[in-house]
């Protein structure tokens, strides 16, 4: 993948450079919801500027897994490292102890997340949504934050909507603001949790365009999605999850032409 300085990331001052080549390193991650074993020994790595698409039926654990990456969900065993930092926990005598809240908050600053239901702050305008965290968390000077926020809005094609409240935006527009909001924290990687699943079909394209742009500019991304067209165009790797396990991994081409696992085949036959 060639990286060219481009519009989207230019708005936040270029591609954030994590100190290591491996951005995410997950080893043997296990998670239970009560007695339900939702993640079974998940291990995977994501390198800098890689785009990984995670597919799988609902309930397969794909959303849960990326929520563990920024510690919105606890894990019961295993390790997740982002930029070399153990996420959410400290290791005391080989056991996981949940980290201090302030440390977890600090780690999350490096990890942008885009939600299925957008989760924009309804009491704040589009621009305020974007600059809230930079002002509050990063202590960015207001003028600088506003400039960056407006630049980001311009890049996602919503320059005219800066002072509009989320309720007055379409789903696609809201999701683009949500992407801009996550980028405003200058994250080293972005997690997308089914970003187009709650959208009307005619709005999916505009959100995918922004994500493709981001991928082309070299953002490290994990994307949970059923959009195989997106995967084919920009993904470096595709992971197929089923019952809390990664059952198949490969290039998008592999999944289109030569899937091995029976469950992968049956899943793909339903969504393609």
């Amino acid at each position: 993948m060639t990286v060219q300085p481009h519009d989207l990331l230019a708005a936040i001052g270029g591609v954030p450079k994590p100190p290591t080549e491996v951005v995410i390193q997950a080893t043997d991650v296990n998670k239970w919801f009560g007695r339900l074993h939702v993640l079974r020994d998940i291990s995977m790595t994501v390198k800098r500027q890689e785009v990984v698409v995670v597919i799988g039926a609902s309930g397969s654990g794909k959303t849960t897994f990326i929520r563990c990456v920024n510690h919105l969900e606890k894990i019961q065993s295993g390790r997740i490292f982002v930029n070399g930092h153990l996420i959410g926990y400290r290791e005391v005598n080989g056991k996981l102890v949940e980290d201090k809240e302030s440390n977890i908050a600090k780690q999350r600053q490096e990890i942008g997340m885009v939600f299925q239901r957008f989760n924009l702050f309804p009491h704040k305008t589009a621009l305020e949504n974007i600059i809230e965290a930079p002002l509050l968390v990063r202590k960015t000077p207001p003028a600088e934050a506003t400039d960056m926020g407006k630049a980001l809005l311009t890049r996602v094609g919503l320059a005219a909507k800066a002072d509009v409240y989320p309720a007055q935006l379409s789903g696609g527009q809201q999701q683009r603001v949500a992407i801009a909001r996550a980028l405003a924290m200058k994250p080293a990687l972005m997690l997308f949790d089914e970003p187009t699943s709650a959208l009307d079909p005619e709005m999916i394209g505009e959100v995918l365009e922004v994500m493709k742009e981001l991928a082309r500019e070299g953002m490290t991304m994990i994307v949970v999605t059923h959009e195989m067209g997106f995967a084919r165009e920009v993904a470096d790797r595709v992971l197929m999850m089923d019952e809390g396990q990664i059952i198949e991994e490969g290039t998008p081409e592999h999944f289109f032409t030569n899937p091995q696992n029976e469950r992968t085949k049956s899943f793909l036959s339903k969504i393609l």
Partner: peptide, 23 residues
């Protein structure tokens, strides 16, 4: 308030107290 609001705020690096107060 939708729990997604707290999650979104936390995912942006806010602490519980900051998210409560501002969001």
């Amino acid at each position: 308030i939708d729990p997604g609001q707290m999650e979104a705020a936390k995912s942006l690096g806010m602490t519980y107290a900051q998210a409560m107060r501002r969001i």
